[in-house]
């Protein structure tokens, strides 16, 4: 059996998940910031405006989990919070409609806005965005003969998020652009109507955090998993190699020109432990995960790029510590 390198691991065995024998869960060593800073690494793997994958290496699970929790529930974003219904004759009930509108992601950058004070009855240009949605469904006068498609028969029979109009408050029109505050996606179906149905709504969006309501969460998902590691302990060839390959996610096990299996890319394995179903090959692999290597996946809803969301999350934790320290020092 090849000697595994010195990394904290969990071994994924056939019937149990076991810590490596020399691993005491990283809790024994004394705290030393210099050592922490030296061991910590970050590697960005993928990054665009909506998605990011990065590795956080050499940190305690408590920190990784704190960052994840912060991104989900404490980084602010803007969402529709109040809906004034002047008229709603569609079949969708007022409260259901209001809830649907709340869930529409807005493009407005929350860093440019303040929290609205709890006792405020009217919003100001610094803490509130207002929109209106006024749609009336009618018969299409120039409908083609013999057509039964609703889009030919009626006008405005589907209400989409692109029909939400921004009503700038105060000086807002000169600071923001409509495209930068409105819905992220224009093709979100809000309601379906028939002739005579009408919507006349006034929408008020405020800044909030995911702890209060999930619609304020700036991320669609923010999660981490541990890096999988696969080690082959003996040569696997021919039919066994193909069998071994089929036990893992595509691309994880490769087969070279001589028909020998090798580990190509363990990173994207799902760690399903399928190999243990086959007696002939189950002795050929050691499955494990690296306990201090976190693969983060952050998917933004659209208001802020994911790298900014992560920075904001860490900043929130930093500011929390700072304000608590200030309070303790004045005690």
């Amino acid at each position: 059996m090849p000697k595994l390198d010195q990394k904290p691991r969990v071994m994924l065995e056939e019937f149990r998940v076991k810590n490596a024998p020399d691993d005491y869960g990283m809790a024994d060593e004394k705290w030393n910031f210099k050592k922490f800073a030296k061991n910590m690494r970050i590697v960005i793997v993928r990054l665009d405006n909506f998605e990011m994958e990065f590795d956080l290496i050499g940190v305690q699970p408590a920190f990784a989990n704190a960052f994840r929790r912060l991104m989900l529930s404490e980084v602010p974003s803007m969402a529709i919070e109040k809906v004034m219904i002047k008229n709603n004759t569609s079949i969708i009930q007022d409260e259901v409609l209001a809830h649907r509108l709340g869930l529409i992601p807005l493009k407005a950058d929350p860093r440019l806005f303040e929290y609205r004070p709890e006792d405020a009855t009217v919003g100001t240009e610094f803490d509130t965005l207002e929109f209106s949605l006024k749609v009336k469904c009618s018969n299409n006068k120039s409908q083609p003969k013999d057509s039964f498609r609703p889009e030919d028969l009626y006008e405005n029979h589907s209400v989409y998020s692109s029909q939400i109009k921004w009503c700038p408050l105060g000086n807002q029109a000169s600071v923001h652009k409509e495209a930068d505050v409105g819905p992220v996606h224009g093709d979100i179906l809000i309601s379906k109507m028939r002739p005579g149905h009408e919507l006349d709504l006034h929408l008020v969006a405020v800044k909030g955090i995911g702890k209060d309501h999930a619609k304020f969460s700036p991320v669609a998902t923010a999660s981490y998993r541990l890096l999988p590691d696969i080690t082959l302990t003996r040569e696997v060839t021919g039919g066994e190699a193909t069998l071994l390959q089929s036990c893992f996610s595509p691309g994880v096990i490769g087969i070279d020109s001589e028909g020998r299996a090798f580990v190509q890319e363990a990173r994207y394995d799902t760690c399903s432990r399928n190999v243990y179903r086959y007696d002939e090959i189950k002795d050929s692999v050691i499955l494990s995960r690296i306990r201090d290597h976190f693969i983060f996946n952050v998917e933004s809803v659209g208001a802020m790029p994911p790298n900014i969301i992560f920075i904001q999350a860490v900043k929130i934790l930093r500011d929390k510590c700072k304000s608590l320290l200030d309070e303790l020092n004045t005690l």
């Binding site: 910031f33 800073a37 910590m40 970050i42 920190f63 920075i311 860490v314 900043k315 930093r318 510590c321």
Partner: peptide, 9 residues
Amino acid sequence: VCDHTMDLF
């Protein structure tokens, strides 16, 4: 720790 994480990131 937070400051270091931010800088590194």
